[in-house]
Design a protein around this nucleic acid. Structure first.
Length: 445
RNA sequence: UCCUCAGUAGCUCAAUGGUAGAGCAUUCGGCUGUUAACCGAAGGGUUGUAGGUUCGAGUCCUACCUGAGGAGCCA
């Protein structure tokens, strides 16, 4: 694989550091930033990163023009530069390869009067979040975002190769699908108020009747005053919806999706998992079939483990962690009390007080990564539910239409990308799974 | 919204109510194989803000500001 960037004529070819091993013995060019520099009086070791990896270079005073050696020796952290030289296998170098520098040009030297703030030593989270735009260059952050990229690509590949059509849904929405307290309100020209979407699901129910199987994938917004390691106010969600589908289809597709994406991460992002010190065996253990459990049984299991939960209540985070502390793969908990679920869930025909919904609770305390279920397809039942939830029919006129014109059983789910990535990476906090997290008290940088 | 904790050098942190310190970073010097390199020296402070108690406050009290962790709610 060659680098997308080309070198000037007469210069050695530019390569990505990731490919350095294939160019042992060759003269090449690398364009990057100074990651670290160790120096002696007559030798120095600039380490370069270029976004694909880190490569140690060696500059020996006696082998170079004096000005070039002095320039390299006095480089400052994160200065941008292009180096040329020969790649050589070297056991003493991190990564096993090294470049003997023959030539270099500094693109921009960071002045020592205003040095790069993130040093190789430890920093507090507040400082790092304030410097998020620079923190992204650090190895762990870089690795987490690379895993995120792989997760997103895996999700798209899974749906695209299984007959789903990507139909994205609007960000501006006219009304709430649940309570307005968690919606961000936006002025939409003169007198109109619109809201940032919380979910594309209602629209997905329309698109799946056009295409059979669809998914939307985009940012969603929740104005919840949540201040925990699992919450962002802006996060990405993928939401498939399937016509002629039931709760069982949701379980099957969700299980397949998770296994597929984990397989991709394990196949393509081993190095990043290593940087993150993520125990890959924990991910390798996640295989179908997942555990299946009714809400009834989940409540019983929790009570036997000492939780104070009563039948009819929703699970808190401690409940989710308790529920999964003895399993190595997700638990699919289904048939919740209708009262804790949204108005659009299809009731269980055998026990109408239950909703045909399912939550996938990930192990290791990562909590709910998928939530979904079967939607109401009967017109009269939908109207009844809207009334019960005191939702105005006018606002849902188009949604009601879907039950008038060829209504069929249909089902779908939503998966939160950041929570999933946090699980893959073994991260304590969801904020490291997105480049610029938006949280209750943080909207900068 | 509620509960808990924390704000001291650019960063990470020390400092019985009694002279504000260390490591890293920066500057200068030394070192031809460093691995968060090492060795020597220098500069660097309105202790988050405003009050209060005290002979004396970084330390105790009150309020506020900022941040972190958690609860509820959720993906």
């Amino acid at each position: 694989m060659s680098s997308p960037l080309t070198s000037p004529e007469g210069k050695p070819p530019r390569i990505a550091i990731r490919e350095a091993g294939r160019h042992a013995g060759e003269s090449v060019e690398i364009a990057g930033w100074l990651y670290n520099l160790r120096r002696g009086g007559k030798i120095c070791f600039p380490q370069l990163r270029d976004g694909t990896g880190i490569l140690q270079c060696v500059a020996v005073k006696s082998a170079l023009p004096e000005a070039l050696f002095e320039t390299l020796k006095d480089l400052t952290q994160e200065s941008s530069l292009i180096v040329r030289g020969r790649i050589r296998a070297e056991q003493r170098a991190p990564g096993g390869y090294e470049m003997d520098v023959e030539d270099a040009e500094v693109v921009q030297r960071v002045p020592e009067s205003d040095p790069y703030p993130i040093t190789p030593k430890e920093h507090g989270i507040d400082f790092l979040m304030d410097h998020r735009h620079l923190w992204l260059r650090s190895r762990r952050q870089h690795a987490a975002l690379a895993v995120r990229h792989e997760v997103i690509r895996g999700i798209r590949d899974y749906f695209d190769s299984n007959g789903f059509v990507l139909v994205d849904t609007p960000i501006f929405t006219p009304a709430a699908c649940e309570g307005t307290s968690t919606l961000f309100e936006v002025n939409y020209f003169d007198d109109e108020k619109v809201y940032l979407t919380q979910s594309g699901q209602l629209y997905n129910e329309a698109t799946c009747a056009a295409f059979g199987k669809t998914y939307c994938f985009g940012p969603t917004f929740r104005a919840e005053r949540s201040k925990t390691r699992r919450h962002l106010t802006e996060f990405w969600m993928v939401e498939p919806e399937m016509a002629y589908a039931t709760l069982e289809d949701v379980k099957r597709v969700g299980e397949e999706l998770i296994c597929f994406v984990i397989g991709r991460v394990l196949e393509r992002r081993r190095e990043e998992l290593k940087v993150l010190e993520r125990d890959a065996a924990k991910l390798e253990a996640v295989k179908a079939p997942f555990h299946r459990m009714s809400y009834d049984d989940a409540v019983k299991k929790l009570q036997s483990k000492g939780s104070g939960i009563q039948w009819g209540g929703d699970f808190g985070n401690t409940d989710e962690t308790l529920l999964t502390d003895d399993v190595d793969r997700p638990i699919m908990v289904d048939r919740y009390p209708a009262s804790v679920k949204a108005f659009y869930f299809q009731p269980d025909p055998e026990r109408p007080e239950l909703a045909l919904g399912v939550d996938f609770i990930a192990p290791e305390g990562y909590g709910e990564v998928i939530g979904g279920g079967q939607r109401i397809h009967d017109l009269d039942l939908l109207l009844k539910r809207l009334d019960e939830h005191k939702l105005p029919r006018e606002a849902f006129d188009w949604y009601i239409d879907l039950r008038k014109f060829g209504s069929v059983p249909h089902a779908g789910f939503g998966m939160g990308v950041e929570r999933f990535v946090a699980w893959m990476c073994g991260l304590e906090h969801i904020r490291e799974t997105i480049a610029f997290p938006r949280m209750l008290y943080r909207t900068r940088p």
